[in-house]
Design a protein around this nucleic acid. Sequence first.
DNA 1: GCAAGGTC
Length: 991
Amino acid sequence: MLETLFCKDLSGQLKIASKKEKIFNPRVLKCPSRSPKLPPKPLQILPPAGTPMAGNRQIRALNVAEKPSVAKAVAGILSRNHARMREGRSRYNKIFEFDYTIRGQPCHMLFTSVIGHLMELGFDERYKKWHSCDPADLYQASVHKFVPEDKLDIKRTLQQEVRNCQWLILWLDCDREGENIAFEVIEVCTEVNRNLNIFRARFSALIDREIHEAAQNLDRPNQLFADAVDARQEMDLRIGASFTRFQTMLLKDAFSFDFATEDRNLVLSYGPCQFPTLGFVVERYWEIQAHEPEEFWTINCSHNSEEGTASFSWIRGHLFDYTCAITIYEMCVEEPTATVTNVRQQEKLKYPPYPLSTIELEKRASRYFRMSSEHTMKVAEELYQSGFISYPRTETDSFSARTDLRAIVQEQQAHPIWGSYAQRLLDPGAALWRNPGSGGHDDKAHPPIHPTKFSAGESGWSQDHQKIYELVVRHFLACVSQPAVGAETTVEIDIAGEQFNASGRVIISKNYLDIYRFETWGGSVIPTYEIRQQFIPTTLTLDSGVTRPPPLLSEADLLSCMDKAGIGTDATMHDHIKKLLDRFYATKDANTRFTPTNLGEALVMGYDDMGYELWKPYLRAKMEDDMKAVSLGTKRKNEILASGLQEMKACFLDARMSKVKLFEAMEVFFDRTNRPTVEEQQAVGEVVRRCGLCQQADMVLKRKPDGNFMVGCLAYPQCRNVVWLPGSISEATVTSNVCSSCSPGWSGMCGGITNRNGITGLVFLIHFKFRRSEIPPNYNAEHLGCIGGCDETLRQLTEICGTGSRNLPGMSASVRGRTPTMSSGNIPAGNVRHNVCTRCRETGHAANDCPSLVSTFRRSRTQGTNNPTGESSVSCSSCGEPCVLRTANTANNRGRKFYTCQSQECGFFVWEDMIGTGTGGTNAPRPNSRGATTASRGRRGERGRGRRGGGRGNDVTFVSATGEPVSGRRCFTCGDPSHFANACPNREHDK
DNA sequence: GCAAGGTC
């Protein structure tokens, strides 16, 4: 064993540690919260190379990799393929044994692995059941990390092997998740061996030199990286669970859905990744719905000669202004002689793709084979497992200089189809080889996806296995090939001062295109022209067209959106996409294009109408920024957790207050059921007692929509325990007074009786106010009553007045479907609350003054108007109604926001950025709109019909040379039938 | 029954 402790000073230099540093050095490992039983133990750092060792006794070291394949590969490299393999308790995680020397220290190495994360984060038992608590409580509910059932064998292996070890060397992937898994392994191992010296091996590729270097330069685990992941996990769990429970319980029983599923299994989930993914799909769909075709005009010219036909395009592209277009066109018609002004010949290169990353594999498989990303990854995983391709989850799109690329090509020479291409690649005379380009991404853990074993097709392979293997091989061969070479000719002509051009391309050398059959490079022939040559065009036409909406998002598009916005990782993106389909949020057509379902659209619409951008990627982006800050040490884990969760809880409470928006959005698409929603049954109220029937949840005082009061169990519908109260109650408030008759052990008699859940059996008294006219004169209008069964007054009033419910009047608790047990009710000890805010459940303020009312996640729709409600404060100058905010799609103002009246008649609009400048607000026409305008939506299919005009360009026809448009049309700009767009008097806004 | 992240 090493006797001397070393540590690093601030400059990173190794030095002998002082006693204080051994204890307080921040690099010293241990997270006290993870292993409360053991005090933090200082760590040793290996001395620099050449430092004499304290002793030569062999160290026993347990090495742990993130996956079995890495354990096998690293053990193979370090042992030079002389490791002995034996079984562990987990069938997938073998143990390799061999001797190895680290800086002169002889070691007996045991090398095993985990399978990704060893632990999960979950709520404590008390909060696990959906009805056990208010979803808002999940923002502060206690959570814990634990090893799930299916990983217990791995834990046992680790603990069994590490007992007799002195060192623990962590070979997890070198990213934040890997660092977090490292600490999970540490926690499990130090439970049984607190004297471990713990090291981190950092490597970026499974290459001999790199692995040996990593072993000889062991480092320490990085607590900050692990902290960042801890924070992310906790945020994801709390946010996901709270919103999922909330919206599921609110909506699932309230509406008849248009898809076949068992209601009981329907979960309307929310997640910080799945919702933005849905958001991309909905946003594109809305963009298409809101698109209004715009007319444009263009001049085309063609010329036939003996060599063929050349088609010339107008340099101006197209004009939206008809007057300009027709004027120019008439000039050309009057002087139609074309003069060649330039003939340009250029060599053009088309480069092969970058080495293959996971996202590119998914996108290309979707594009070339219409294979879903989820299926692609499944097939790729199987090819990887059987050794035919490299690890398929990688962000890396450049090969390390140390990779033997030619050896990989060499293997493919035997293939009957592409073998000859591989041979040409290796033939110096063919000059086809080119070192692959770099896409600029490197996850430092895995190389780009490439073939690792030759195959001409295996008997067990499906067609999809063939396709993915072929794609990986062809992509790799393309990467190491020369780009395609083409000769491009461009001819420019002048007609009456207007410029036109035409181009043709001849492919000189296909190079990589010979192997990469998935890509093409169109060639076209153009006749020969010479400068100053003149000719009369064969045709010269003024053609019209219309702008078209973008297409629905394809799977490849969706992956690109997610990648760009940082939603998910290369290993999880396909899961998020699949989740949209599994949850009935979106559908995918045969062309892999996504359409939101009614449910998906309604959910996004609901949150959008609330003014929340929970369906946008900003929340994830903020979390990512916070994680980076924790990784760098500029913020603490607890700091970002406290602020992030406080913010999200406020957002949650606010969203719940605005749940009517979700309801309204759902009503656009679905019929209501007559069933009361779980959420309605569970409107949060004051806790009266612990439910004596299910013993799992609290019973709370609630007011039903009909105004009557009841005390019901929060575990409804699992538990149907309820106490109906007299129908003559006008007000009811739970007090902090406890009934001494129904609360055994109360008043200090036994110091409080505690059941096995640690909950005392208190029944709180309720302060009732009765409507004077509805109770007999000999009863007081105010009464401090108990629902525990002891209150005779309450019983009598219930008999006299009835409960106003569908149940028979009666004081005794009536349980829907079951007999009540009212004698053993308990409520949590210490849950006596005074003046608790019903929004955030904090004391010291009322709900109306709750600071959570304002959240930074709430979007201000009226930028510059200082309207805290988020509603539009711009009113129509004609009808006075609130305006909606839209986005212009006109040529000159694309993307610019404006307010417009929802009424078709008013035509009021004002630019958003002109508010407060004294400009705008006139009765100008409404520009074309783009984006979600939910205020005026009707049922799906009806939306936008009135303002989309005639559809996609079928109504746009050739405009005659006299300039007379086809009759029956109206101005595209303002909709006025008295004139056309080019003559619209109100075009100022479009300039 | 809920999240997202590893990976067999």
